Amino acid sequence: MGQEFLVLRCFTCQSFQVKKVNKWTCKLCGEKQSLLKEFGRGSGADCRRHVQKLNAMRGAKMEDQEQHTLSLW
């Protein structure tokens, strides 16, 4: 069996990322992190697909909130 990867979320920018270690640095905001909660575990390919899905869902939710905020004006 290949290496096992983790799906983790940055506490600052809330982006999901694939990592192999418990202590890591976010690639987007540069914040140092430690493992608080894992959102998935598996092969690198499986974790990448899961991260893409989670980040797409996060982006859609942010767009919906933005549209809702703009419609209040």
Score class of each variant (00 low, 15 high):
2 G>P: 12
3 Q>L: 10
3 Q>N: 09
3 Q>F: 13
3 Q>A: 07
4 E>Q: 11
5 F>W: 07
5 F>C: 11
7 V>Y: 00
7 V>L: 02
8 L>Y: 04
8 L>E: 13
9 R>L: 05
9 R>H: 05
9 R>P: 07
9 R>M: 13
10 C>T: 03
10 C>S: 05
10 C>D: 05
10 C>E: 05
11 F>G: 15
12 T>K: 14
12 T>S: 11
13 C>D: 06
14 Q>Y: 13
14 Q>D: 10
15 S>E: 12
15 S>Q: 12
16 F>N: 04
16 F>C: 00
16 F>Y: 14
17 Q>F: 06
17 Q>W: 02
18 V>W: 03
18 V>K: 02
18 V>R: 04
18 V>G: 00
18 V>P: 01
18 V>E: 03
19 K>S: 02
20 K>G: 02
21 V>D: 07
21 V>C: 06
21 V>P: 02
21 V>E: 10
21 V>M: 08
22 N>M: 03
22 N>R: 13
22 N>E: 08
23 K>W: 05
23 K>H: 10
25 T>A: 06
26 C>S: 04
26 C>T: 11
26 C>P: 04
26 C>E: 05
27 K>N: 05
27 K>S: 12
27 K>M: 09
28 L>P: 01
29 C>Y: 06
29 C>F: 06
29 C>N: 07
30 G>I: 11
30 G>D: 02
32 K>C: 11
32 K>W: 08
33 Q>K: 12
35 L>R: 15
36 L>P: 01
36 L>I: 09
38 E>A: 07
38 E>C: 05
38 E>L: 00
39 F>W: 13
39 F>S: 04
40 G>L: 02
40 G>F: 02
40 G>E: 01
40 G>P: 00
41 R>L: 01
42 G>F: 03
43 S>E: 01
43 S>M: 03
43 S>H: 03
43 S>A: 12
44 G>N: 13
45 A>V: 15
45 A>I: 12
45 A>N: 10
45 A>Y: 12
46 D>G: 07
46 D>A: 10
47 C>H: 00
48 R>K: 01
49 R>M: 04
51 V>G: 02
51 V>I: 03
51 V>D: 01
52 Q>R: 10
52 Q>Y: 12
53 K>F: 07
53 K>P: 03
54 L>C: 06
54 L>H: 06
54 L>F: 06
55 N>M: 01
55 N>H: 03
55 N>G: 03
56 A>D: 14
56 A>F: 09
57 M>C: 06
58 R>I: 03
59 G>N: 15
59 G>E: 14
59 G>K: 11
60 A>I: 13
60 A>G: 10
61 K>F: 14
61 K>E: 06
62 M>R: 15
62 M>Q: 14
62 M>E: 13
63 E>D: 10
63 E>A: 12
63 E>S: 11
63 E>Y: 08
63 E>T: 09
64 D>V: 13
65 Q>M: 11
66 E>N: 07
67 Q>G: 06
67 Q>H: 08
68 H>L: 11
68 H>D: 13
70 L>M: 08
70 L>Y: 13
70 L>P: 04
72 L>Q: 02
72 L>S: 04
73 W>K: 13
73 W>C: 15
